[in-house]
Every structure is written in C-alpha cells, then in structure tokens.
C-alpha cells in the first residue's frame, strides 16, 4: 500500500514537472474549466442593447453614479441620439468598445486559460483578445494604453481545495473615447479608469460564469460595481461568427456629422435639418 501511495504522489508531481526546456506540463485541472462558448445572460430588462449592469435596461435606467458634468454630457448625448445621431457611442464609427463594454458580450466570448495568461476573445467591432497576465509580473513603469487596457490577474483557491476557483484582475492603461454601453454612457475623457474583476464559475452550476466588475473612473462620484453572468453554450462545436464592423456599415462620419449611406449608395441625413457635407474640395459641386 505504501508503494502505491508513493507512486500516486509521484504521478501527481509528474503532472506538474518540467519535461523540456521552455515548456512544462500544464495541469489545467488546477484551473476551472472555462472552455467553450460563453453567451451573455440578459436579465429581463425589457429589451434594447446589452447593458453594463445587465439587471437594468441600458441608458438612464442604469442609474450610473455620474458626476454632474458627465450627467450633462450623457443627457446631451441622449438628446442627439433621439434626434438620429450617435451621441457619445463611438462604436458607430467602428472604434472598439474597449473596457468595460467588451464584457457586455454583444458577441459570444471564449476564454483560454494558460499558466502565463488568460485570454478573453470577443469578436465585436474589434476582434478583441484581452490578455490577462498571470505570470506574476509587476505593473510596468509605463503602462501601454489601449481600448482594452492592460490587465494583470491572479488565480486564487478560495476554498483551499487545491484547485483555483477565482481569477482576480486589475486593468489600467486606457485610451478612448469609451462608453459603458451603446446609449453612450460615458467614461471620463482622461482615461484614468481602473477596473477590478472577480471571475468565477457559479458554485451550483458550472455552466454559468460570473464577472463582478468594479469601475473607478473620474466620470463617477463613487466606484460602480455590477454583476455579470454568462451561460456556456452546450454545443460541442459552437459557431464563431466573424464580425467585421467595416463590412456593411452604412454609417459615414464626415467632420462631426454622422450620415447614412442609402441602399442606392447615396448619402442620406440621419436627423431633421442636418446640413449636407461641405463639398468645397469638389470643383463639379460648385456648378
């Protein structure tokens, strides 16, 4: 019996051993099974586009704790959208959603767990692949800026079971403009957002994934925390739709105006009384 126990222990150790330079046996059983396709769970909020807080409808009902300045910006944006414009929703021009909007999962999500990094893929507007570095690195002296931000994570075994069950992530280093959802709920133009996430499987249902996101941003009066849920698609070979924003996007931005390309290929206004684009560079238009 003693020999069997010894052999068993050595076998487990072997599953973790170095076997060749530059590569090692990666025991993915140590990590939660996050494979497959994850679909954002939309709570019963009465329709519309996915929202940052999925328990509330997008837009004003999000009850975002905005500062007075950013509430005014948001209201002006809603007015512009009501008149046919796009407001502060930058994704209409195929700029990436970035954080946190990418985690609204307008398109299905894939999570790839490896020892050095966890990747999150969402193909919406931009073919995002978030890199969450879990290799123990420190924050760089100069954090690179991007719409997705720079993420450092740490796996935690909260139950002492010998298996990781929680990924804690901090993300900094942004550029913009970014909004929380397609209603244009804006993040601060200084791009000093910090996001903290707790990503974990549901204790009762391993096909539900949760992401508790807390955003700290100068457009807010206080940190804002939401609880997101994703459902694993049961299909063993799910279809991954390719989303190319530049394909079939009829919105045309010229100057500060958004127009629409009609089915006949001609430019159309998007709001009442919208001025036509300035064609002073075209000699033929001056006739």
């Amino acid at each position: 019996m003693l020999a069997r126990s010894t052999i068993g222990a050595m076998a487990v150790a072997a599953a973790m051993a170095w076997t060749a330079p530059g590569a090692f046996a990666f025991d993915d059983a140590q990590y939660p099974n996050l494979k497959g396709q994850w679909i954002g769970v939309r709570q019963n909020t009465g329709g519309g586009q996915p929202s940052f807080d999925p328990y509330k409808k997008w837009g004003t009902t999000q009850d975002a704790p905005l500062t007075p300045e950013y509430r005014a910006l948001f209201e002006a944006n809603l007015k512009e959208q009501a008149e046919g414009g796009q407001g502060t929703n930058a994704t209409s021009t195929c700029l990436p959603p970035g954080m946190p909007m990418v985690m609204n999962a307008h398109s299905p999500m894939e999570i790839i767990v490896l020892p050095e990094a966890t990747y999150i893929r969402v193909d919406h507007i931009r073919d995002t692949r978030r890199r969450i570095y879990t290799d123990g690195r420190s924050w760089p002296a100069e954090v690179p800026e991007g719409f997705d931000g720079y993420s450092i994570g740490q796996w935690i075994d909260t139950k002492g079971s010998g298996h990781y069950d929680l990924l804690e992530v901090e993300t900094r280093g942004f550029k913009g403009p970014r909004s929380y959802d397609a209603s244009g709920l804006p993040l601060h133009r200084d791009n000093q957002s910090v996001f903290r996430e707790r990503i974990y499987l549901d204790a009762a249902n391993p096909n539900l994934l949760h992401d508790d996101i807390t955003v700290t941003d100068h457009g807010l009066t206080e940190p804002w925390t939401v609880h997101k849920t994703y459902r694993r698609n049961a299909q063993p070979q799910p279809i991954w739709i390719e989303y190319i924003c530049g394909e079939g996007n009829r919105l045309v931005r010229i100057g500060n105006e958004n127009y629409m390309e009609g089915a006949d290929g001609n430019l159309m206004p998007t709001r009442k009384g919208q001025p036509a684009p300035d064609l002073s560079f075209f000699p033929s238009a001056k006739k």
Partner: peptide, 8 residues
C-alpha cells in the same frame, strides 16, 4: 473533465 495538458 480536464486533462493534464502536456505543453512539452
């Protein structure tokens, strides 16, 4: 339902 992934 996860197998040891031997990267080597």
């Amino acid at each position: 339902d996860a197998a040891a992934f031997d990267e080597s």
